[in-house]
Amino acid sequence: MKFRSLLVAGLLAAATAISGCATDGASMFANSYGGKKDAGYQLPAIPLAKLPKEYRRQVVRYDTTEVPGTVIVDTGAKHLYYVMGGGKAVRYGIGVGREGFEWKGTSRVAMKKEWPVWTPPAAMIKRRPDLAKYRGGMGPGLDNALGARAMYLFNKGGDTGYRLHGTPEWWSIGKAMSSGCIRLINQDVIDLYNRVEVGAKVIVK
């Protein structure tokens, strides 16, 4: 009888754990926001208590006709979805373009770079002359505007000028602050980078 009680208790505990993962995908990645070394750079930990739960990486239910591997960006909700198939997607919190810099459309990931060099476009330098010192490129590092990873978006006309990239400014996630690029927390952009293949379709809506 005692064995049966222990068995039932164990099954109930397992069911509770499984249920928790299914309904709270954020808990699956809670340990992914700590400090970590990457290519010699020490990424600082993200203070999860200050990051709204809706912007933490999690697996969610997501019905779409797009094939697995597609990236769908919902600029209104400030969410990026990596389509997994089976009615599921990995959802990330993002920062988007501020007023006047929003954009929508379909493109593809033409190339991917780890710890990329950031070169501000001429129009940005015109708006912010202080960036002229980076006309030849800002070297990779913890303060680099593109963060730990960048995925370059091209369409039929060539380079759109927009990127999916990391940012050291974790507090900007969930806000409209960029010049049009889609930014993710560095820990999240590394995860996305490892999933997305060159040639992947990216839909921004």
Results as ranks from 00 to 15, higher is better:
153 L>Y: 12
199 G>S: 04
90 V>I: 14
178 S>G: 03
53 K>Q: 13
144 N>D: 11
55 Y>M: 09
173 I>Y: 04
69 G>V: 01
205 K>V: 04
108 R>P: 00
8 V>G: 02
190 I>A: 03
48 L>P: 02
102 E>M: 08
61 R>M: 10
203 I>F: 00
186 N>L: 00
187 Q>Y: 02
105 G>Y: 07
162 Y>C: 10
5 S>V: 10
97 G>S: 07
11 L>Y: 00
26 A>K: 08
30 A>I: 11
85 G>R: 06
18 I>L: 14
94 I>H: 04
6 L>C: 09
63 D>E: 15
59 V>R: 12
159 D>L: 14
61 R>H: 08
163 R>G: 10
44 P>K: 07
191 D>Q: 08
128 R>D: 14
128 R>L: 10
160 T>Y: 11
195 R>E: 08
62 Y>C: 00
8 V>I: 15
47 P>D: 12
83 V>R: 01
150 A>F: 10
65 T>V: 11
96 V>Q: 03
88 K>F: 10
195 R>F: 04
22 A>L: 15
47 P>Q: 09
77 A>W: 09
91 R>K: 13
86 G>I: 05
73 V>A: 03
168 P>K: 08
124 M>C: 03
129 P>C: 12
15 A>Q: 03
29 F>S: 13
74 D>S: 09
42 Q>C: 04
105 G>D: 06
135 R>Y: 01
79 H>R: 15
120 P>Q: 11
162 Y>H: 14
201 K>Q: 02
124 M>I: 15
200 A>V: 00
70 T>S: 12
165 H>F: 10
172 S>E: 10
168 P>S: 11
129 P>T: 09
140 P>L: 06
159 D>H: 13
152 Y>M: 09
35 G>D: 07
89 A>N: 02
111 M>A: 12
156 K>F: 04
71 V>G: 05
196 V>T: 00
158 G>H: 13
125 I>C: 09
84 M>A: 07
88 K>I: 02
133 K>V: 13
8 V>A: 06
154 F>R: 09
164 L>H: 12
200 A>F: 00
45 A>G: 12
57 R>E: 06
106 T>W: 01
26 A>R: 11
98 R>M: 14
27 S>W: 09
84 M>Y: 00
109 V>K: 02
205 K>T: 02
158 G>W: 12
66 E>H: 03
62 Y>A: 00
145 A>E: 08
61 R>C: 04
87 G>L: 08
140 P>Q: 05
77 A>Y: 01
205 K>Q: 12
111 M>P: 03
193 Y>Q: 03
41 Y>A: 05
24 D>Q: 13
73 V>S: 03
183 R>Y: 03
58 Q>F: 01
91 R>S: 06
38 D>R: 13
34 G>V: 11
26 A>M: 09
40 G>S: 07
141 G>F: 06
179 S>V: 01
199 G>L: 02
92 Y>M: 05
92 Y>A: 07
142 L>A: 05
82 Y>Q: 04
204 V>G: 01
81 Y>Q: 05
88 K>S: 13
148 A>I: 05
175 K>W: 06
193 Y>V: 02
106 T>A: 13
44 P>H: 10
198 V>Y: 00
146 L>G: 08
32 S>A: 15
132 A>L: 08
104 K>N: 09
63 D>Y: 09
81 Y>P: 04
66 E>V: 00
49 A>Y: 11
18 I>G: 12
18 I>Y: 10
